[in-house]
């Protein structure tokens, strides 16, 4: 598997009790992350590639059952990165 460790965070939480198994979240996701078999009223949509999420929330905005919550990971909410580390290395 090529998925990095951060793939363990699922940004798109789908409440199985609320989800009506429509196809909207699959259709609207701009990153092709959410898969749901067209018209299958039994199966839940699956977030196939969670580490490729843009956190745009289009899935949440279109969900007719209010079943989706976007969960930000710790590294986004409480970020500790030293910004200077993003500003390049000077090769002498």
């Amino acid at each position: 598997m090529s998925a990095p460790e951060s793939a363990t965070h699922n940004p798109i939480d789908i409440d199985p009790g609320k989800c009506v198994r429509c196809d909207f979240c699959d259709w609207i996701c701009p990153g092709d992350l959410i898969y749901h078999e067209d018209g299958n009223k039994e199966k839940l949509p699956v977030v196939m590639y969670p580490d490729e999420c843009w956190y745009c929330g289009l899935c949440q905005s279109i969900c007719p059952a209010d079943a989706i919550t976007i969960i930000f990971p710790e590294e986004m909410i409480h970020n500790k990165t030293d910004v200077v580390s993003l500003l390049g290395k000077v090769v002498k």
Partner: peptide, 17 residues
């Protein structure tokens, strides 16, 4: 194209796709 604070490649200001 480059790294940002979160370190998540698809967390980008503009459309990561």
């Amino acid at each position: 194209l480059s790294k940002n604070a979160s370190g998540l490649a698809f967390d980008s200001w503009h459309f990561p796709y």
